[in-house]
Design a protein around this nucleic acid. Sequence first.
DNA 1: TGTATTTGACCGGT
DNA 2: ACCGGTCAAATACA
Length: 324
Amino acid sequence: MLYMDSSSSWPENFPSDRRRAIEELVRGREFALQLRNLMHKSVGNSGSQVLVNQDLVVNILNSFTASLSILKNGDSDEVSQVPAQTQLSAWDAAYRKSEDSGESSKSSTIRDRRGCYKRRKCAETRTQNSSDLVDDGHAWRKYGQKVILHAKYPRNYFRCTHKHDQACQATKQVQRIQEDPPMYRTTYYGHHTCKNLLKASQLFLDSATDQCPMISFGTHITEKDLNPLFTSFQSIKREAREDHQHNQGTSDITYKSQSPSSDYLLSSDQMTAFESTGHMTVLSSDDVISGVNSSSCTANAHSLDMGAGIVESVDFDDVLQFDF
DNA sequence: TGTATTTGACCGGT
DNA sequence: ACCGGTCAAATACA
């Protein structure tokens, strides 16, 4: 999340009343951010209540951000994160203005796109190699394909389907890296902020009804427990199933917490991060609970080959036990 | 008709 | 100037 620096220099002749309005909005957004952070730490809220609260905070933040963008009119950092409708309005306005004033554009059919997008600089990335194009549970929309220098195969660019309606900034790149057997490298940029509830619920319902031999959950998961931050489950389930075929008789896996309210699920993203770093973040139906960093949680978990039964428990603020 | 994909052009960073 | 990421008009598809 980008923040407007209140100490940034203001353009000359920038109206003082607008400046004050912007400063007030910045303050308000800071308060909303603090509220969000407090909510993340709070305990005792039910999952659904946290979801409602998070919705509210997201709406508040979006409103502030959109307002700031409109007022400041042209700060690309701000434009990049406001809802698309706001962006389009601003661009349409700018476009109409240039038309009205009779300014000529480079092309009669293509409008001036200068400043219309900002490249990510050091967004968080995660890379995953796989032998097939796994469904990671998110809705992606392809927006480009490029031939890459010294690469045998073109690189494909995808953005979240909800980029415009929910301002979700997550993107990924998929590139074939090997012909036979086919291997693909997928690089994820940023996190999903969209509420992909329909698809997530389908996955959960699917996981609840599918008699997957490797994974079971201690309690039934209902839609009210869904956390939009937590979605990708399908691929790990498939991994588990495939592995099971190679390792018949491996015991069921239940991710259980000692707190009575919730069990834990692992997304494929988390497993990928876990593979490469030995560190993972575990999400409950409520929210991020804690991080795991245990030298004993290494290779075996990666392929879900739990035959060696490595991890018994990991220390947390709120202790999470892995019953393998 | 609405949504997704393709693809050439544009743009920013180096 | 070049490379790679993104945009958006054209096209395909359900």
